[in-house]
Simulated assay, not measured.
Amino acid sequence: MTPPRAELTLPSPDATCALAARLAPRLSPGDVLLMSGGIGAGKTHFARCLIQSLQETPEDVPSPTFTLVQVYDTPAGELWHADLYRLSVPDQCVELGLADAFETAICLVEWPDRLQDLTPSTALSLSFDAGSADESRQLSLDWSDPRWDGLVAELLA
C-alpha cells in the first residue's frame, strides 16, 4: 500500500511561516518531523517559525548547522532542532541523544537521510523544493502513521 502524501505550494516565506505556526500547537513529545530539501529550500525557516510559535516569548532561533542540536523548553514540551548535514554515520546521531529524544521530545530534523536505520517509522516527512515563483516553495508531506492523517487534513483545509 502506498503511504499517504500531500503536496502544496507555499507562495512566500510568510506562507511557510504560517503553515509552521498552524502545525506547532498540534505537536507533542514523541512527534518527529523529518525536513529534507537542498540548501536554501526553507527547512530552517520553517523550523524557526515553528519553534518561535511555541515559545512563550519568541527568541532568536539559530540554525543548528554547527552546534548540530539546539534544545528548547516550550509549553508543549522539550523541542530538539537537529541539523545532521555534517554527520557521516548514524552512530553520531545516537551519540547526540537523538534516538532518546525521538521518544521524549518534539524533534525537528534537517537532513534526515543521515539517520538511515534510526529514522522513526512514525515521523512526518516534509520535503521542501523551490517553487516556480521567486521565494515560493513546493512542500510534500509523507507519512505512514495514522496519527498524521487528520492533522495533515486540518493543515490543508
Rank of each mutant, 00 (worst) to 15 (best):
23 L>K: 01
76 A>F: 01
64 P>G: 07
13 P>L: 00
123 A>I: 09
109 V>F: 09
109 V>N: 05
45 H>Q: 14
18 A>I: 03
119 T>P: 04
18 A>V: 06
12 S>E: 13
39 I>E: 12
9 T>L: 15
71 V>Y: 01
66 F>S: 10
83 D>W: 07
48 R>A: 13
122 T>V: 00
120 P>N: 10
77 G>E: 03
121 S>T: 15
65 T>E: 12
30 G>C: 11
7 E>Q: 15
107 C>F: 03
101 A>I: 06
125 S>E: 15
124 L>T: 02
34 L>V: 09
133 A>Y: 00
27 L>H: 04
120 P>A: 13
128 F>K: 02
32 V>M: 08
34 L>N: 03
49 C>Y: 06
87 L>Y: 07
88 S>Y: 08
79 L>S: 05
139 L>N: 01
72 Y>V: 09
97 G>Y: 03
16 T>Y: 02
27 L>D: 04
142 D>T: 15
96 L>T: 05
129 D>M: 13
130 A>I: 10
56 E>T: 15
80 W>V: 06
138 Q>I: 09
8 L>T: 12
66 F>M: 09
84 L>Y: 05
114 R>T: 03
37 G>V: 05
134 D>C: 02
28 S>W: 00
29 P>Y: 00
35 M>H: 07
78 E>F: 00
82 A>I: 09
97 G>N: 06
97 G>W: 03
64 P>W: 05
21 A>W: 04
62 P>T: 07
21 A>D: 02
31 D>L: 03
88 S>V: 11
36 S>I: 00
17 C>V: 05
46 F>M: 05
47 A>G: 06
37 G>A: 12
137 R>C: 04
79 L>G: 06
